[in-house]
Design a protein around this nucleic acid. Structure first.
Lengths: 237, 237
DNA sequence: GTATAAAGGATTGCATGCAATTTCACCAGA
DNA sequence: TCTGGTGAAATTGCATGCAATCCTTTATAC
């Protein structure tokens, strides 16, 4: 058997592409996601699209209503609050585990990511939202618990989606600075400080997001998906 | 539109049936789960079976290896430890939320469940494992956070599966007594006590499960599934 | 002009078919 | 007997087709 059994497959690629598109606000909350059109764009049949949608639905990024098809999830403010509260508590667990595992290699990984964030600081806003989310996910990876990682991923993605609904622009600007401080506390092994910083960081993000920018109805601009779909069709990641 | 839009559908029923079968040790870890045979038994096509298996795989109860089909998951001891550790921490969150929401109605629900556990005390062991798991899930329901509920469900199920692999018989006997104490502490609003009891309860369960009863190879006794499949075919829950 | 009804189109739910991959059994050769 | 390889059977991966459901538009009645 070939060494690379970890070959990601089409369903994974499609899920990832859709997830990125959602988190980068290319697909806005409420947008319909018809199986046919998506399949056509990605160059696969409805079967695979359906699988991907189901996966995203399990993550809470997509809502799946029986006989009515899928749409990008539109979390209510209440759900959003619940999510952010849970997030602070879950990430507490991450912090204490990362501190236990701390090592120079881990530190290097964290700083490398921070560098990416800095680099993209002036890129488009959606991309920096995604990178900010991925900082938290990287942290969770370093915690060494696969299940915990999954939960942080899910919550992080959903919070990202929520931000795209309720947050005003520039909500992530100071995020980078806060990330830097967290890394510093971690490197010193100061669990309390890291925890406090993380709490502060998350509540800050949440609080910045408390305006209801009521949006338009469910639209269907799948055209914006094209670059994401192309990558998949060409076999990219 | 009919009032009951909550009509559970076949995929849900099949997933539930398989989940119960796994938790009740009817399907043992390592057993193969071929789509065809399952479809035949449940009276549906591979499509729905596949969906169900994928769902269970997302929950960690089933392992899905590419081109090689599904089998009941066989968590390693290491994963098991991780799971139990996470569980205590997650259930801490549940406790503090339940305390906030405490009310006579909630208390009644908890005691009703406890009564069921007592009643089934002398029933078959797998069923009491399932009931014990469901106690924790009920608690999580009362915590009022859908996401937290999902996590407790998943972790609970997976721990149940783990117990079926590593635990020796009678590992749940004193569980009921401990559940009773937890309810008591909750009713008094004593968060610390409840938390300690829960911790103690969970670590006790985990510690009882530290023997490696190495198992046989992957077998295929799908016949034992028959009663579960029949329920689904007849439209039961 | 509003409201209700019916028809047509669009979209999902599920089963089935075919190609690709894996598994197993069997057999040759050392 | 053990190793290695070859072919057939079993099983999954994916696409497609048909029926059922839902949505929209048009037509009809009041």
């Amino acid at each position: 058997m070939k060494a690379a059994d970890k070959a990601k497959h089409r369903t994974d690629m499609i899920s990832s592409a859709l997830r990125s598109a959602i988190l980068e606000r290319v697909l806005m909350p409420g947008m319909k996601l018809p199986e046919d059109s998506l399949g056509e764009r990605f160059g696969v049949s409805r079967t695979l699209i359906r699988q991907s949608l189901e996966r995203l639905a399990a993550e809470g990024l997509v809502e799946l209503r029986r006989n009515k098809g899928a749409m990008v999830a539109k979390p209510s403010l209440e759900e959003a609050r619940d999510l952010f509260e849970l997030r602070t508590q879950i990430e507490d667990l991450v912090i204490s585990r990362v501190i236990k595992n701390m090592s120079p290699e881990l530190l290097a990984e964290l700083e490398a990511h921070l560098a990416k964030e800095v680099e993209a600081e002036n890129a488009s806003e959606p991309i920096s939202i995604r990178l900010a989310t991925e900082f938290h996910i990287l942290l969770a990876k370093l915690a060494g618990s696969p299940v915990l990682l999954r939960y942080v991923e899910e919550i992080g993605y959903r919070c990202g989606l929520t931000l795209s609904l309720y947050a005003r622009p520039h909500s992530t600007d100071c995020g980078i600075q806060e990330h830097r401080q967290i890394i510093e506390a971690l490197s010193k092994g100061d669990e309390d400080a890291a925890r406090k910083l993380m709490r502060h960081h998350l509540t800050a993000v949440a609080d910045r997001a408390l305006f209801t920018t009521e949006e338009g109805g469910p639209l269907l601009y799948l055209d914006a998906l094209e670059p994401y779909a192309k990558k998949v069709r060409d076999g990219g990641a």
